[in-house]
Write a protein that binds this DNA or RNA. Structure first.
Lengths: 182, 182
DNA sequence: GATTGTGAATAGATTCACAGCT
DNA sequence: AGCTGTGAATCTATTCACAATC
């Protein structure tokens, strides 16, 4: 946004945190600031991208070409934030071949998942399948060598080996808001 | 699932927490268990639904009938978890009148938001609009008297008054997973 | 004069461990 | 014998406050 220098207080304000918290958080990874001056925004940004593993683009494979899967395939800002959907798969023959991601890709056959992950180098899997298929599909992703999975099915996934799952359960967010209505 | 009695240890296992944590959490709201026995599942469930404000159905209004909005309108298990989409609105004339939520509803004109919220009694708003429209639409929702908003736009909403926002930012989930890939 | 980085102080969350109940 | 509810102990996170630096 054109800002060249920023203080911990200013960053903290933006996020609703304390200045001390920001400094502690940043200092955990190194000394990025300049005493008496603040942080240089472009260099801080570059450093954090490196530290957080966001320096280069992560290829994603989306499993499930239903409404959620196809919506994600064209989610805005994915590319500018260093993620790229490299494949969308489904088991429904009627969906295979359909254009997705604004026509950049076509839905592929989920039975070829292994080959697709191998050829695209996909690093992160996205589960956009019905709850009853989620555990199975997770295990199939795990079998391809993928190390991280974002799960949108409203179900608890039993993790295997070292394949981390992050579940985004819409219902839990709604329930949090419902509590606030009381 | 037919289970009548459960111990704190069993619940904890299910969620990957400690038994002591479960007991502390539950005991915060009252004494729901029976010493030496455990918790009666049906009565615990009923009590928690009441305590958490999930005893009766919460009407939702979805703002934005794009892919995310329409996907949410037919999200599975909403009804069984006591949420119900009562309206979907959009500003695009081409979308107004289209059937959504498996044909149960039709997209309505966003300019009638006030009347729609009033007539449906919607309690929670869901923002499924582009990032640049999110703040505006949030304020419009706030103006209708809605008290809680779930925001899917990848943008920080500036809260007004007492209208709580919960932002679900897909990119942040992906970034967390990317860190795990290091 | 301003701001970082950080040890010390404080606050908060989790776990321990056991009395009390079934 | 088994399990809850909870005070005490421990562990973790946040804030304070200030020497070091620009």
């Amino acid at each position: 946004m054109g800002v060249e220098r920023i203080s911990s207080r200013q960053v903290a304000e933006r996020f609703g945190l304390s200045a001390a918290q920001m400094r502690k958080d940043l200092a955990r990874f190194g000394e990025f600031g300049i005493r008496g001056v603040g942080y240089d925004v472009p260099s801080l940004r570059k450093t954090l991208e490196r530290v957080l593993g966001l320096a280069d683009t992560h290829p994603l494979v989306i499993v499930g070409a239903g409404r959620i899967g196809t919506a994600l395939a064209r989610f805005p800002d994915l590319e500018s934030r260093n993620f790229r959907v490299v494949a969308v798969v489904d088991i429904d023959p009627a969906r295979i071949g359909e254009p997705v991601a604004d026509g950049r890709l076509r839905v592929q056959d989920a039975s070829a998942l292994d080959a697709i992950v191998a050829s695209t180098g996909a690093e992160i899997g996205v589960l956009a399948v019905p709850a009853e298929a989620a555990q199975d599909n997770y295990e199939q992703l795990a079998a391809t060598g993928i190390r991280a999975v974002l799960n949108f099915a409203p179900v608890q996934i039993q993790e295997v080996n070292d394949v981390r799952v992050k579940t985004v359960d819409l219902l839990i967010f709604l329930e949090e808001l419902a509590f606030y209505l009381l």
